[in-house]
């Protein structure tokens, strides 16, 4: 009986213990990547419209096309999060709760611009009432509990001439107008820590850094980015932030850092070491650094910086 749980323990431990080996580190951008999606606001209240943005990087600067869509019920990750409920069925189910409610359903196709809009336009009461039926209708969907909020899924597929990548994001449509809003965090700047203090990287990319050196990079973020909030249990908490440091040249000491109130200090969380490449490793003089910040309630922000690499004297 315990073997099944022991297998979980071992499985997780082994996964955690396994090293990346010779693989390209997660944070080294070598191909077309969606580094982050952002919905503003991240958890819209009834009537609000979220602006959907994406941090997409093509290392060779190829033209990128965007395809935005959303779906209220998706299948498993293992199957690629397929949409399990078509628009017509969704409208029909909502209309069954309240005649005309289905008319408020935004089209699933959200366009091909670099940004998209998604409105929380359906009555929360209708959503809450229809939810169990929607779950049954879309057998196999991930979300089974829609008593607190109604989860919808954003999908972005980006293409270049020879690459395609897809990202998924979950958005929680709040039922109540007075729900405590979450705000996306904000990154003011990226820079390096020097003997004299903090030097933000120049916005025009002219900051010079020596190749084959280790630079301590720092993210200038107000500590208020980690917002206080009340958990579902009623307990007061402070947001946890996850910082992912992407580079297109060299590598970083940590792929990610994190701020956990009481566990990891703000200073530690907002710093990393960037090992700058040699000319052999990265002939381009320009090197880019992206920092993506996620809070544990769906908030996302990012900041990009570019520096110029020079040979050591």
């Amino acid at each position: 009986m315990m073997n099944r749980y022991l297998a979980i323990t071992l499985g997780i431990t082994l996964v955690l213990a396994s090293c990346a080996g010779d693989f390209t580190p997660y944070n080294e951008v070598k191909s077309l990547r969606i580094l982050a999606l952002q919905a503003e606001p991240p958890n819209p209240r009834p009537g609000q419209t979220s602006v959907l943005r994406a941090l997409v990087v093509s290392p060779d600067n190829q033209p990128i096309t965007y395809e935005w869509s959303w779906c209220p019920a998706v299948g498993s990750a293992n199957a690629g999060y397929p949409c399990l409920l078509d628009e017509q069925t969704l409208r029909g189910e909502l209309n069954a709760v309240l005649v005309g409610a289905g008319d408020a359903v935004p089209t699933y196709d959200l366009g091909t611009a670099t940004e998209a809009l998604l409105a929380h336009a359906i009555s929360p009461l209708v959503l809450k009432t229809a939810c169990p039926r929607l779950i049954e209708e879309s057998a196999g969907m991930l979300t089974e509990d829609c008593t607190q909020s109604f989860s919808v899924y954003l999908r972005l597929t980006v293409h270049t001439a020879n690459e395609t990548v897809t990202a998924i994001d979950k958005l929680a449509w709040q039922y109540r107008d007075d729900a405590t809003p979450n705000q996306n965090p904000m990154v003011t700047s990226l820079g390096q820590v020097t003997r004299t203090g903090y030097d933000a990287f120049a916005k025009d990319g002219t900051t010079l850094l020596q190749r084959n050196q280790r630079v301590t990079v720092h993210a200038d973020i107000p500590e208020t980015a980690a917002q206080p909030y009340t958990m579902a249990s009623g307990q007061a908490a402070r947001e946890q932030l996850l910082f992912t440091w992407f580079v297109d040249a060299g590598d970083t000491e940590a792929v990610r850092t994190t701020f956990i109130d009481g566990e990891v200090t703000w200073e530690v969380a907002t710093q990393n070491d960037w090992n700058l490449p040699t000319t052999d490793d990265a002939p381009n003089a320009a090197a880019r650094l992206w920092l993506v910040v996620r809070d544990n309630r769906g908030g996302v922000a990012w900041h990009a910086a570019q520096v110029t690499l020079q040979e050591a004297p």
């Binding site: 990547r33 982050a36 293992n78 999060y81 990548v165 990202a167 998924i168 994001d169 990610r256 996620r294």
Partner: peptide, 10 residues
């Protein structure tokens, strides 16, 4: 599929 919530690929 890149999962924006977990910052991982599924």
């Amino acid at each position: 599929t890149f999962n924006n919530d977990t910052d991982q690929y599924d």
